[in-house]
Amino acid sequence: MKLYEFPPTRSIRARWTLQELGVDFEAIEVNLVAGDHHRPEFRKINPAGKVPALVDGDFVVTESVAIALYLAEKYPQKRLLPTDLRQRAEVDRWLLFTVTELEQPLQRIVRHTSLYPEALRQPAEVDLAGREFKEMAAVLEGHMQGRQFVVGDGVTVADFVLAYTLDWGNEAKLLGDCPKLISYMERMYARPNAAPRIAQAVASLAAR
């Protein structure tokens, strides 16, 4: 398998899943700063020009959560997805919660602080998105009361996706009122096969 990635993007979610599974894969960097994602050869893999992308033989999967789910289902013996119907529904629930209620406001913050041309940035949007993130993080803080993992008694791909997103929120200084989420995030990143933290990924780029 080949993973097209670029730190510190959502590629971390896909890499984390691969590392937890112990699956051999070839890592191919798509340097977004250098514009590699606009090259025709990469656009053939993902017409959206975004990472991550996973190539498994003649099959291509894009979108980080879809990649994580595909890998977990490809290797069911690793038990990164529950077989119980209700627990699987809970995994889906928290995956969707993560990418809609938590990731979406974080992405808006990034767009209006660095991605958009300065003339198009709206500071009010940054403040609004930050409040929205904190409101939904508080919901998750309550859910994590007495829990080690977001669903059930064992790790699932929902934990990898969520921990990365919380790290993103922590980098934006939005987790100060959520000690349980911070503790959970730190536990997840202390796992032997965890992916690099966002700050580590940024530092590795800066050191080149």
Rank of each mutant, 00 (worst) to 15 (best):
G142M: 01
N31T: 05
G142P: 01
A68C: 15
T83K: 11
G146W: 03
D36V: 07
R86L: 13
Y70H: 14
N31D: 15
N46H: 09
M185P: 01
E73Q: 12
V55W: 12
Q19D: 15
P40E: 11
W168I: 00
R13G: 07
H143T: 03
T100W: 00
P179T: 08
L102Y: 01
R131C: 03
L181W: 13
Y4G: 05
V202D: 00
A119L: 05
I28C: 13
A66K: 08
D92I: 06
F160C: 00
A27N: 07
L3I: 12
I28P: 00
D167G: 02
V151L: 04
R147A: 06
A207W: 03
V110A: 14
A206F: 02
E103L: 13
M144T: 02
T113Y: 11
R86S: 11
N193E: 06
R111V: 04
E103Q: 15
A206V: 08
G22N: 10
K78M: 11
D56A: 13
V99T: 15
T62E: 08
N193C: 02
A207D: 12
L205E: 08
L18P: 08
Y164L: 06
A72R: 05
I12E: 04
A158H: 04
A206P: 00
A195M: 02
V51M: 07
E118A: 15
D127I: 10
L120K: 14
S114L: 13
I12G: 01
L120S: 14
P47C: 09
H143N: 02
F6V: 01
H112V: 03
R121L: 11
K173A: 13
V99H: 08
L54P: 08
R93P: 01
P82K: 11
R79W: 03
P8Y: 03
V126R: 08
L81F: 11
A138T: 08
H37N: 11
M1C: 12
E63M: 08
S183P: 00
R111Q: 14
I45A: 09
R208A: 11
F25L: 07
P82V: 10
A190D: 09
N46V: 09
P82F: 09
T113L: 03
A48C: 06
Q107H: 06
T62C: 14
R39F: 05
E5I: 10
S204G: 05
A190V: 01
P179Q: 12
R43P: 04
Q104D: 13
G57F: 14
E29C: 04
A48I: 05
D84I: 09
E125S: 12
A129E: 02
P196R: 07
L96D: 14
P192Q: 05
R108E: 14
I109F: 04
L71G: 11
H112W: 05
Y184V: 05
A124G: 15
H37C: 01
P192K: 01
D84L: 04
A194K: 00
D153I: 05
Q104K: 13
G142K: 09
Y184I: 02
P76N: 10
A72E: 07
L81T: 07
L162N: 01
T100R: 00
A129C: 11
P52R: 02
R208C: 04
P40I: 09
G35E: 07
V155Q: 06
V151A: 08
V110I: 12
E101Q: 13
T98C: 15
L54H: 13
Y4C: 06
R131M: 11
M185W: 00
G154D: 14
V33Y: 08
